[in-house]
């Protein structure tokens, strides 16, 4: 099932490499919505997510020659996106280890519609309410599926920090969800 997709991607990327602007656009159109979804999870706002997306795509096209056609193109692009997001967050000094704001929590409980089913949009809202550091670790661990060890290396924090940030984030989300469904 995956085979033809990869074949298509491979051809696409080869024409991108030869500098075909149209092929670049096709590749962009194919994955950009999904990548935007990733950026939205990491960025505190839509504007910043768009900046990350843009930055990430430029990196993708600049480094396309280093794609080895081994894994899926999407996975490769996704990894670049996530790294771009982390880099941007680091640049903006909104990184994990700086967040220790237990007071922020209160504002978190407002304006969530109570419904058993929660749309991605609403969950995204919850994610955005997390402090940036929690959000980053939660994204990396729960959704991207990195290990705490990997996360520690990526964010240059200790493994324990990653674990504690994650459990706090999780607790946080849980409380929000409970409150939501109460």
């Amino acid at each position: 099932m995956n085979e033809p997709v990869h074949m298509v991607d491979e051809e696409l990327i080869r024409s991108c490499l030869s500098g075909d602007r149209n092929a670049q656009k096709v590749l962009f159109d194919k994955y950009t919505r999904r990548m935007m979804g990733i950026c939205m999870r990491y960025a505190p706002s839509r504007e910043e997510a768009e900046d990350m997306l843009q930055e990430g795509w430029i990196k993708v096209f600049r480094n396309l020659h280093s794609f080895r056609f081994e894994g899926s193109a999407e996975g490769w692009i996704k990894r670049i996106m996530v790294n771009t997001c982390l880099e941007t967050l680091r640049k903006n000094k909104k990184m994990a280890n700086q967040v220790e704001l237990d007071d922020v929590y209160e504002s978190v409980y407002t304006e969530i519609n109570s419904a058993d089913f929660m749309s991605a949009k609403e969950l995204l809202k919850l994610i955005h309410k997390l402090p940036s550091g929690y959000r980053t670790v939660f994204n990396l661990f729960a959704i991207e599926g990195y290990s705490h060890k990997e996360i520690a290396a990526m964010l240059s924090i200790t493994e324990n920090t990653s674990k504690s940030q994650y459990s706090r984030a999780r607790m946080h989300l849980q409380r929000m969800l409970l409150l939501e469904n109460a």
Binding site: G37, A120, L177
Partner: peptide
């Protein structure tokens, strides 16, 4: 919770501003 978020976001897509491509 992990499952909820993972399921929701593993294929999550978001609208992209058309100006992004021209910037790229």
């Amino acid at each position: 919770i992990e499952k909820l978020f993972k399921d929701t976001f593993s294929n999550f897509e978001a609208d992209v501003n058309p100006s992004v491509w021209s910037n790229i």
